[in-house]
Computed example of a mutant assay.
Amino acid sequence: MEIDRTKIGLVYGSDTGATEEITHAIVQKCEFWEIDVQAVSKIDTSYFEQYDFIILGLSTWYDGDLQSDWEDFFEDFKTVDFTNKIIAIFGLGDQFGYDDYFIDGVGMLAEFVLKNGGRIIGHWPSEDYDFSASKASVDQDTFYGLALDEDNESHASEERINRWTKQLHT
């Protein structure tokens, strides 16, 4: 089956606006794609049927909690069939304040994407981060997706987004 990588769905959740800002920054860097951006609070599971390529964005709160809208949608998300779909995930977290849970939300979503037949692209190196543990770790050197720390390293976000979106495009 041929995957359509020109028309993309992007679903995000944001409580404070930081993830929404990052979402818009990612969309600007992906001007070569047609991207349908939706807040997770505004969709149902049928949204995922429309796209072969989907980007998911969220923040991790406190001790490894999903962002509130993702938390509300999570039971439904667990039922989505991701067979023949390409998924990329980006997450925001605080690597110093919550170093045992850094971007755990990415790993929580990745678990069900993989369990339900999806393929994850956009893995990201973890070497430039200072954290103790993360559910988002593929292995000790790699996250399932882009890791951003707007609390402590907002100065690095633009360059990381540039590198990640180029990686997604190739």
Rank of each mutant, 00 (worst) to 15 (best):
D52Q: 08
Y47W: 01
D44C: 02
H24R: 12
F53Q: 00
S14F: 08
T45Q: 11
I35R: 10
L56K: 01
E34P: 05
Y51W: 06
Q50G: 05
Q28L: 14
W33N: 10
E21A: 07
D52I: 07
S14P: 02
Q28S: 15
E21P: 00
A25W: 13
I22R: 00
I22K: 06
Q50T: 12
W33S: 14
E21G: 08
K29G: 11
S14Q: 05
E31W: 06
I55A: 06
D44Q: 04
D15Y: 04
E21H: 10
K42C: 05
D36L: 09
E34M: 13
Q28W: 06
E31D: 15
T19W: 00
I55E: 02
V40T: 07
A18H: 08
T45L: 09
I55D: 01
A39T: 09
I35P: 03
D36Q: 10
A25S: 13
V40N: 06
T45G: 08
I54C: 03
I43M: 02
K42I: 05
W33F: 14
I26M: 13
D15G: 08
V40M: 07
T16L: 03
G13F: 11
A25N: 13
I55H: 03
T45Y: 00
K29V: 11
S46M: 01
D36A: 12
F48V: 01
Q28P: 06
D44S: 07
Q50D: 09
E49M: 07
E31P: 04
D44L: 03
Y51L: 00
F48M: 02
G13M: 10
F32Q: 15
Q28A: 15
I55R: 04
D44V: 05
L56N: 02
Y12K: 02
H24F: 12
Q50I: 07
I26T: 06
E31M: 09
T16K: 05
Q38N: 08
E21D: 14
K42A: 13
I26S: 09
K29E: 15
T23S: 07
A39M: 11
E31I: 11
Q50F: 06
I22M: 12
V40Y: 01
V40H: 04
Q50V: 00
F32D: 15
G17Y: 01
A39P: 06
D15V: 12
S46N: 05
S46Q: 09
I26L: 07
A25C: 04
K29L: 13
Y47A: 03
D44K: 08
E31S: 15
E49Y: 02
T19K: 01
T23C: 10
Q28N: 15
K29T: 14
T19V: 12
D15E: 14
D15K: 11
F53N: 05
H24L: 11
Y47E: 10
I26P: 01
Q38L: 10
A25R: 14
E20H: 02
F48L: 01
D52H: 02
